[in-house]
């Protein structure tokens, strides 16, 4: 019964798509059948290796760097009220800049290579992580802090066993926002200037009017988004299992 409820609507929607476009003469909206049939020819292993993998690696590199920088700075700033008050307006401003406009700026500095794309991703992703880390570190429970102090928890142990886990839920919330920004920036930076990558490929198909291929690209990109968010959720469950349990316990 659950499986049925889980699959019913997607099946219906795909069926509607299939039959509504069957025999479609509309150039830009090819039949779903055509799209699906063209997919294996487009997304060969070589193509995956040449276009999808580099995109993913850049995404991973940028996201990881942003995580490290964001958390490190967040811990430094969050624990110091005066520093926090000083830099917060600047950070709020930097966060509010729509990340894609950084693409032209970073192209000035870093050209159009891999470095640029990773830098673009870092520069867009770091703000939600940083600001959430600052807030998470600031809001560590007072009783917990005093407990840690009274048991002599200092230095790295304090960081690993008190500060980071306590700020964890906030940091993860920031990382989740950052991930969707990262995907946007991965695609945008490739649409702007690239000779490979999934964003580049899709735009190429569009420009050369390879419409069914373009549709497959969009579907692949969509699947990538779903896959990445699924992986993120797995990681979140592993890291924040305690937090979700705690929330359920509090709700009773």
């Amino acid at each position: 019964m659950r499986v049925l409820k889980w699959t019913a609507l997607p099946v219906v929607l795909i069926a509607i798509w299939w039959f509504a476009t069957a025999g479609s003469e509309e150039f830009y909206v090819p039949p779903l059948q055509t799209i699906i049939e063209s997919a294996p020819d487009v997304w060969t292993l070589d193509r995956l290796r040449a276009d999808v993998l580099p995109s993913l690696l850049r995404l991973l590199a940028g996201f990881t760097l942003a995580l490290i920088i964001g958390i490190a700075l967040g811990v430094l700033i969050g624990g110091r009220p005066r520093v926090r008050a000083t830099v917060e307006p600047v950070l709020e401003f930097l966060r509010a800049i729509p990340p894609p406009v950084l693409v032209p700026v970073i192209m000035l500095f870093a050209g159009i290579g891999d470095g640029m794309k990773v830098l673009v991703i870092v520069s867009g992703c770091v703000w939600p992580i940083l600001l959430n880390a600052v807030e998470g570190v600031r809001a560590v429970d007072g009783v917990l802090t005093e407990t840690a102090r009274s048991y002599g928890l200092t230095g790295p142990a304090r960081l690993w066993r008190l500060t980071l886990p306590a700020a964890g839920p906030q940091i993860v919330a920031g990382a989740r926002q950052a991930l969707s920004v990262a995907i946007i920036l991965m695609v945008i930076s490739e649409m702007f200037a690239a000779s490979s990558g999934i964003g580049f490929t899709i735009v190429e198909f569009q420009r050369s009017f390879a419409i069914p291929e373009m549709w497959t690209g969009i579907i692949v990109l969509g699947l990538l988004g779903v896959l990445l968010s699924g992986l993120f959720r797995l990681a979140e469950t592993a890291i924040l299992g305690w937090y979700h349990g705690l929330r359920r316990a509090q709700k009773g």
């Binding site: 429970d141 407990t147 009274s150 048991y151 002599g152 928890l153 008190l162 305690w242 937090y243």
Partner: peptide, 29 residues
């Protein structure tokens, strides 16, 4: 010196199991 606070719910580390909570200060020692 060891302190036991009134707010037990906020004094135990919610991300650690009971044994790890008890063990933490000992690691520190």
């Amino acid at each position: 010196m060891a302190v036991v606070f009134q707010e037990y719910g906020r004094s135990l580390f919610p991300w650690m199991r009971v044994a790890a909570n008890v063990e933490l200060p000992l690691r520190q020692k």
